[in-house]
C-alpha cells in the first residue's frame, strides 16, 4: 500500500485463463491460516529512500480454488497516526485456477513477465510461461508458490488515509523457510517496490500452528 499518487479506475474484471489437468500445489504448513510474517516494504521514490515495516497474517486459505487471504499491517507510515491495516485476497498461481498471466488490474502479460522474472526461482519456468502463461506447468511439487495479492479494503482507517490500494503484489513464497518476496505493481506508483517478509515465530524457539474450522 504505497502513497496515493493518482486516483485509478476500478479493476477490470475479466478472469485470467483457467485450465484443467494440472495438480494443485501441495499444502504448505508455513502458508496456513494463523501464520504470521514480518519484514519491510521498500517504497523509495526518486525523491527519497523509504521503507515501511510490514506485518502479514494469513486468515484464510482454499487451495482448491487457488485462494488465500489475510491482513497486511504497515507500521511506520509517515502520514498515518496509527499502523495501517488492509485486507488482501490472493490468487495462487496453480495453473488450474490461475496462470502467471494476470489478465486484469491493468497488468499486461509483459508487465507480468517483467515482475515474475525478478524472482530467481521463476527463471526455470520462464520459457513455458512465455508460451502459455504456464498453463501446462505442473507446480504441485515446486518448492515455491507464486501468487498475486490484491488489497481489498482498509481495515482500520478510511480511504482518505493518503495511501492507495489500487495496485497489487506479485508474490513468491518459499515453502522451505516461509520467506516471502513481492513486488508492488501499480502504474501510478513507483515501480518494483519490494516486499520482503520472513516467517515469524513470535518469541518462540520453533514454529507454532493454530487452526479454525468454518461450518
Amino acid at each position: 500500500m504505497p502513497v496515493r499518487v493518482v486516483e485509478t479506475s476500478s479493476a477490470l474484471s475479466h478472469p485470467s485463463g483457467g485450465t484443467s489437468g494440472n495438480t494443485l500445489p501441495s499444502a504448505c504448513t508455513l502458508l496456513s491460516v494463523g501464520q504470521a510474517f514480518s519484514g519491510t516494504q521498500n517504497v523509495s521514490s526518486q525523491q527519497k529512500d523509504e521503507a515501511w515495516r510490514v506485518n502479514v497474517r494469513i486468515q484464510g486459505c482454499d487451495l482448491d480454488h487457488g485462494y488465500l487471504c489475510g491482513t497486511m499491517e504497515a507500521l511506520n507510515v509517515p502520514m498515518a497516526d496509527t499502523p495501517v491495516v488492509t485486507f488482501w485476497e490472493g490468487e495462487i498461481v496453480d495453473t488450474k485456477n490461475y496462470t502467471f498471466f494476470t489478465g486484469k488490474w491493468g497488468a499486461t502479460s509483459d508487465d507480468d513477465i517483467k515482475h515474475w522474472t525478478k524472482f530467481p526461482s521463476f527463471s526455470p519456468l520462464l520459457s513455458q510461461v512465455e508460451v502459455d502463461g504456464g498453463k501446462s506447468l505442473d507446480l504441485s511439487n515446486y518448492p515455491y508458490i507464486f501468487m498475486r495479492w490484491k488489497e481489498q479494503y482498509f481495515v482500520n482507517v478510511g480511504t482518505d488515509c493518503g495511501l492507495t490500494i489500487a495496485g497489487f503484489y506479485y508474490v513468491c513464497f518459499s515453502c522451505s523457510d516461509g520467506s516471502i518476496n513481492g513486488f508492488y505493481y501499480d502504474p501510478n506508483s513507483s515501480p518494483f517496490q519490494k516486499l520482503e517478509l520472513k516467517s515469524t515465530n513470535e518469541g518462540r524457539l520453533g514454529f507454532s500452528f493454530s487452526s479454525y474450522e468454518l461450518q
Binding site: 486468515q59 484464510g60 491482513t71 485476497e89 468454518l214
Partner: peptide
C-alpha cells in the same frame, strides 16, 4: 447466517 459467515473477507471486517 452460518453460510453467509463462511466469508473470511467479511469475518475479517
Amino acid at each position: 447466517l452460518k453460510n453467509v459467515s463462511r466469508s473470511v473477507k467479511n469475518l475479517s471486517a
